[in-house]
Amino acid sequence: MKVEVVTSIAEQFKFAISAIWRVGKEMREVGSKCRSSFMNRPNSVPTIQLKGRFVFQMHREFSAALGDALRPDGAELVIDLADVSYIDSAALGMLLIARTRALESGKRVAIEGATGDVLQVLHIANFEKLFEIRCGRRRGAF
């Protein structure tokens, strides 16, 4: 690791911008490994399936998938976290926004498939009071 000595304000500013750019690049790379997708299940329950790390950088993808998932008729929206390995506080906020938008559309929201640390974070945040949380395997999975 290279250690830089920064003396002038201009150098400090340049160093800070460079560090911010590097961190942003790393975060974009992490976010690019995450995908959210809208899919219709056989029983026609709109589902948002997330994979990888559910973090702030996914907010655009998640918002788009949420908009698509709220269009079909039905009383329920499922958010599938079975393939999510990490969830941060921004993702918890996105889930709360999804709940609000779903309720405005007359739908309830269920979170399913969460396990391990992801499930623990949901419980610590008391999400079982706001969402139906279905643990374990997805419906229809073997």
Rank of each mutant, 00 (worst) to 15 (best):
G93V: 12
M1H: 05
H123N: 01
R41V: 05
I79N: 08
A19W: 04
R53I: 10
E128P: 12
L70A: 14
R137S: 13
E11W: 02
L50K: 12
I111K: 00
R41Q: 10
M1G: 05
D73I: 12
S8D: 04
R99D: 08
F54W: 12
E132L: 08
A65T: 15
A65E: 15
A19N: 04
D88T: 05
L119Y: 01
D73H: 12
V109Y: 00
L119M: 00
V23A: 07
R22I: 01
D88R: 04
Q120F: 01
R139F: 14
E26G: 05
A141N: 15
G31C: 03
V45D: 06
I133P: 12
F62N: 15
V118I: 00
R35S: 07
E4K: 02
G74K: 12
S8I: 03
C135R: 14
F38W: 07
E26D: 08
V45S: 07
S37V: 14
L77S: 11
S85Y: 08
A10C: 01
F62Q: 15
E61N: 15
P72E: 14
S89D: 11
A98I: 08
S37W: 11
D68T: 15
A91Y: 07
D80E: 09
L92K: 08
S36T: 06
A10Q: 02
A125S: 07
G140M: 13
R28F: 07
A141L: 13
D80Q: 06
A90D: 09
V5Y: 01
A69R: 14
C34F: 09
I97L: 08
G113R: 00
A64M: 15
R139I: 15
S32H: 05
S105M: 01
G106M: 01
E104Y: 03
R22V: 02
C34L: 06
A75P: 10
R35F: 07
K14W: 02
N126Q: 09
Q120C: 01
E11A: 03
I20G: 04
M58I: 14
T7C: 03
E132Y: 06
Q12E: 05
A75W: 06
S63G: 15
M58D: 15
L122F: 03
V6A: 03
A19Y: 03
R138D: 15
L66R: 14
K107G: 02
F56S: 10
